[in-house]
Structures are given as structure tokens and as C-alpha cells.
Design a binder for these strands. Sequence first.
RNA 1: CGCGAGGUAGAGCAGUGGUAGCUCGUCGGGCUCAUAACCCGAAGGUCGCAGGUUCGAGUCCUGCCCUCGCUACCA
Length: 684
Amino acid sequence: MPKRYTITAALPYTNGPIHIGHLAGVYVPADIYARYLRGQGKDVAFICGSDEHGVAISLKAKKEGKTPQEVIDQYDQLIRTSFKKFGIEFDNYSRTSRAIHHNTAQEIFSDLYQKGIFEEKETEQLFDPEANQFLADRYVTGTCPICQHPEAYGDQCENCGSSLSATELINPQSTISGSQPEMRKTKHWYLPLNQYEAFLKSWILEGHQSDWKPNVYGQVKSWIDNGLQPRAVTRDLDWGIPVPVSDANGKVLYVWFDAPIGYISSTKEWAAEKGKDWEPYWKDKDTQLVHFIGKDNIVFHCIIFPVMLHASGDYILPENVPANEFLNLEGQKISTSKNWAVWLHEYLEAFPDQQDVLRYVLTANAPETKDNDFTWEEFQARNNNELVAIYGNFINRVVVLTHKYYDGVVPSPESLFKEDQLVLDAMKLLPNKIGHAITQYRFREASQLLMQLARIGNKYLADAEPWKQIKTDPVRVTTIMHTALQIAAGLAVLSEPFLPHTAKKLTALLQLEKLQLKWDDVNQKEELIPTDHKIEKAQLLFQKIEDVQMDEQRAKLASSAKQNQSETQIIAPLKPQTTFENFTALDLKVAQIIEAKKVDKTKKLMELKVQLGNEIRTVVSGIAQDFDAAELIGKKVTLLTNLAPRTLKGIESNGMILLGENKQGHFVFVHPEDESVQNGTEIH
RNA sequence: CGCGAGGUAGAGCAGUGGUAGCUCGUCGGGCUCAUAACCCGAAGGUCGCAGGUUCGAGUCCUGCCCUCGCUACCA
């Protein structure tokens, strides 16, 4: 049994508000876990904070004409408020821009530096002279050296799928200023992950094969098996924590080096406020450290951060890293940039005081084992059929009957019948069952076990029929209602980790505040709510959600998707002037697609047969993500016929179909008269 | 291409060698205390496909197909 728990939730990055995906993947499960343990009387530090460094924030500030400080202040405030309103009850929520964090991160860097852990390397990197900064690979575009696609990124060409290095691109261009980057030398410090393979193997691959989630374990194993590379932990940037070494002017700690240290500095800040010692929470072997994260963070929390902690010597390692998969929204990936999301602050405007509904839906449909989909239809169904119909209705029945028969006073029971004992026994099994599911990080299951208690209650009332018995055997009804009230009280206690706002309302409704009921009282106490105890008048815990409300939400999503499409586009820079001769050298002809088939084992490639006069040609085109084979057949397209043939995936492609590519990277055929094609759309 | 996860009733999920299960939805019935809520019953599955191991396979092995993700700055 651990003496204490340090629970961390991924630090939200302050370049935008948070949405339901963040909540479902990280914060709701972490909060349930922390609340459950606190309810058990455990010593818990539930730690989080805003992650406020890194190149994305610096860029966003430049783009919006603000200072980075203004950007992070704005979002830190918004995120902080959202968490508070949703009842995500951190023991401490700090910020990585605070002095305590800067100091802590620098201390850890210096410590590792002095121990000689880092490797120093000088490399050549692309530098944007106009923006006066080095460029991360994804901030460089240019022509792909392999397939000639004009908009390949510095790390990968989306067209042909090849992995690239930014220095290979033809005509590289900075996406920040548009200027041509130049090569410059720069020195950085590297964490030699490759030297820690043996440590990671024995710690994770041997030590956690059975208790870590398959997705986490598999991912880590894949990285280790492929061989780890030294990783730079510093960057050339003007926004971040200065590297505390004398020859490191203008260099800051890599955001992923400093962010997880934020857990430690946030713990320090909390301990100082509470007059506690922070060190046992990070250094005592009897502390259980758990990181709640999304799957994209696995490498940092299972490899990089543990190596940092291990190398420094005296820190403990995480006991588990229960990473969740992703949540989609109405069938599509949640995307901040495309505004395809349900933002927490906007949810609250539409559904005031209904935080628990979202908490419940996101728990019941959490992406624990695979990506899941959030739909408004399911949201409505879960609310109306489960929270309202089963949970809320049970409570309402009990409270209404208690007032009708006994003026709201808990009646004194006669001796229990077998059926009364059976439901009470069934309830007594639940605290351990639910607790076990929670400590195994199976929150979906835990939430369904909770709902089972309300089902037990409804069934009990239906079987015992107090409304009939009252006419023939009123004495029997005292026992029935007493028993039903015990279940209602049990629900109030066991709901707390999942539905904190509801638990509070229910506690008030049943006037349980003074009784101070604990989790284990549910299976240990004979009576949760005593005879002669007076309860409040009935009040609804959940409201039905109507179809109109769902239509509004769906309309909102649809309009943001549309708005996003019609957003004024920045027209791609014009290419150098060409000549009429060059143009006439191109042979453009109209052709009709007569056959279309997706190329096996590719995401994008489509093999097309096109009719061109009396000739049929085979063309391979990267459009499979935007079109189905069926809808392509019969389409008339413009074909560049005299392009040199090229073999893709073993199929010779003779020609190229002219396509427009919009901002989202989706292709449209070239029919400029079509309304949906915007001015400035690039054709290639 | 490589690697990881997933593919079980209309939907969402559980089930790691022994008669296929849960929740929602659908259909039928019951009840009327309750937010037209609750309770009971039924229909609905060749467990992605094809082979193999085994007395026996959703479960183990092999191959393939599909979805999502990762490949180092999207929770």
C-alpha cells in the first residue's frame, strides 16, 4: 500500500482553450481517480498547471501582434476557469512561467549538466534571417525532392509519404516569413536516450508488461526496439527558460524538457502553501506516481521524463501512465485550427449547470482502448435515458414517496424481508467493485457500476410496489422506503468521484451534510441515513435535453466548419513569371474517368483509367482521401497528358489530373464555376 | 514501407481455451410512485476474412483485409 499518491494530469498548452477531447482523455479520469483516493482518506497530491513555453506560443503571439505573455495570460485564465467549473479539483494548478518553475527546471538541467549526462553537439540548421530564428522542420516548406510535390513539409512529403529532412527540400521557404532560410551552425545539448535502453527495458518491458495498458506498453516497446536517439533538450528561441550555462546565449530549454518538470514545481508550490515537504511526493519509494495523459504524450512520459528523473538519481518513477486514445467529434478528428471542437466555456453557455452530464458522457464513452466518437445524439441519449430516466428518476421517486407518506421523514423499519436484504447486500458490494475498477483505470466500467446501483433501486421499487402496499399493508411500506432511502444515500456517496455537482445536490436533498458519510460507510455501516432524519422536498437532479438543443449544437458545428472553409485565404505566393512558350508546352486535354480503384496499402493513391479520345490511360493520383472510387467514375477532368511517366507503387502513371487544393488540404476538381471553389485556390 | 492499437447484435462496449454477455436502441407485455419516467420478456451475432493447432478457439499460431494512431512540437 502506497503511503501517498502523486497524480499528474498533462499540462494544457496555453495557445488555445480546452475542449471535450482534453477532458475525456485526461482530466475527467484523473479527477475521478484523485477524488476516489481522497474519499478513501489517502494522502493525495493532484497536480497540474499551464504549459506556457515553446515555439507555438511565440508564433501565435507574433501572428496576433501580442506578446507571448499576453497570449499565455489569456488562455491560462480561460483554462483555469473551465477546470474549476467542471469540478476538476486539482490540489494545485500552477504555471510554467512562474519563477518557482524556472528555478526548478534550471536546477534540474544544471544537475544533469554537472553530472555530465548531456552530449554537446554542433549542427547546421535552417535559419530564417527575416524572423531571426531557427526553424523547426515543420515550419519549412518546399518542393519534394522525390515526387516534386510543391508543398512538402520539412519532415515529410504529404503527397508521396516520404520522410524528409528539411535540408533536402528544393527551394525551401520559411512558413513564418516566407523568406528563404539559410544554413547556420548552432550548438545544443542532447539527452543520450540511447544510453538508457537497458534501464527502460528492465523498468517497463520487464516490469510493467502486465499492468500497463496495451497501447502504452506497445508504443514504448516499439520505440525501444527501434533504437533510441540522443534528443536535443535545448532550442534557439526567444521564449522559454534560459539554459543555465554560460555559453548558451539566446538558448532556452526545449519545451518538452521543461513541461514535465512543471509537475514537480507545481508540487513544490502546493507544498509551500500547505506548509508541507514536497520531496516525499517525488522521492519517497512509498509514493505512487501516476501520469494521466493522451496517447500523443506517451514518449515524453514513458521515455524522456523518466530518463531525466532516473539520470538525476533520487526521483521515483511513475507506477503507471494510463494514456487514453483520442476522442473524435461527430466522426471527425477534433481540430483546434479548424474549430471542429466543443469548447468547455461554450458548452457551459449552452448547458449551464450541467457539467456532470458532460463528465458522465465522457466517462461512459471514454476512449480507453481505442479512439471513440462523441456525438450529440449519444450525449442526449445518455442524459435522457440514463441520468434522467434511471438515476434522476429513482431519486425523485424515493423523495416524492417519502414526502407523500411520511412528510419527508425517514420511517422506522420493521424487520427486513429477504428482498430488502438482497438489495442492501448488492449495494454493499459496489464500493469495492467501483473502487477496484477505478484503481485499474477502468473508468468506463466504474461509471456503469455506479449506474447499476440506481437500476437496483428502480427494480426494487417496481418489485416491492410501495404505492400498492400502502393501501393494504402500510407497516411493510416503512421498511421498503427505509431501504430505498439507504440506496439513495449510497448513490450520493458513490457518485462523488464521477458526478461531484450531482453528489452535492443529492447530499443537500437528503440532508446528509452533517452525517459526513464516507465511501467505505456504504459497505460497512448498517444504516446510511437514519430513522427520523428529515429530507428536503423533491428537486430534479437532471433535466431532459430536447432535440432542438441538439439541433442547435449540430448547426453550430456545421457553421463553424463552413466558416472555416470560406475563411479568407492567404493566396500562395505567385510563382516566377513564365512564358507563353512554356505554357503551350503543356498538353492539357479533357478526359473522363472510366475506372477507379484505390491502390492497396496506401492512404492516398487512387489508380484511375481515363478515356482520352480513343485512348485509355492509367493515371495514379493522390486523391483517395477526398473521393470514393464510385463517385469518381464518369467525372470529366482536365488532364496534363504530356507529363513524363512516373511509377508509383509499381503502377506507371501517364499524366496528371488538375486539381484544386484548399486550405484544409482537401482536393476538389477544377470546375471554377462551382460555388464551393474559392478564389485563389491553387491548381496543380 | 515500418511500428502500435482496434475490428464481437442497429450503436457503444465486456469477454485471453469449455453452452456468446452488458448498456442503449427496436418490438411485445406489465405497472402507474415517478421527469410519457420505471419493471419484465422477446427478436437481433457464421465474434473482419482465410487457413492451422486442439477433444474443444471470440480467446492460441500463420497469412490477408479494414479503421485509427505513431514515426519524435496536435489530448
